[in-house]
Computed example of a mutant assay.
Amino acid sequence: MSAGQSQDEFIARRRASWKELEQLLVLGKELHRSAPAEISRAASLYRSVCADLMRARAQFGPDVVRYLDGLAGRAHNLLYGTRAYRLAGLWELLVRDFPRTLRRRWQFFALANALFYLPFILGMLGALASVEFAETVLPSQTLARMESMYEQGFYAGRDVHEDSQMAGFYVLNNVGIAFRCFATGILFGLGSLFYSIYNGMVIGVVIGWVIRAGHGGNILTFVCGHGPFEQTAVVISAAAGLQMGWALVKTDGLTRMGSLRAQGKELGHLIVGAAAMLVIAAVIEGYWSPSAAPPELKWAASGVFILFVTAWLSLGGRRRRGARPVGARPEGAGASR
Rank of each mutant, 00 (worst) to 15 (best):
R86V: 09
P62K: 06
Q107Y: 14
F108N: 02
R55M: 10
G123M: 07
A112Q: 01
A84S: 06
R96D: 11
T101Q: 04
L45M: 05
L45N: 11
R14K: 08
L21A: 09
P36H: 02
H32F: 14
R33H: 14
H32Q: 14
F116H: 02
A84P: 02
A58S: 13
H32T: 12
S48W: 15
W91A: 14
R55I: 15
Y46Q: 15
F108G: 03
L27V: 10
G61Q: 10
D97W: 01
A112K: 01
A43K: 08
L31K: 12
Y67H: 07
R47I: 04
R66K: 09
R47N: 11
L122S: 05
M54Q: 15
G123W: 05
Y67G: 00
P119T: 07
P119M: 03
V95C: 10
A43W: 08
D69I: 01
R66T: 10
L27G: 08
Q59M: 13
A51T: 13
P62V: 11
V64A: 12
C50R: 14
R13P: 00
A51G: 09
R13Q: 15
R66H: 05
Y117G: 01
R57L: 05
A37S: 14
L115R: 08
W106E: 08
R41E: 07
Q59Y: 12
D63Y: 01
K29Q: 13
K29F: 15
S34G: 02
R57C: 12
D63C: 06
V49I: 12
G81Q: 01
A37K: 12
A56F: 05
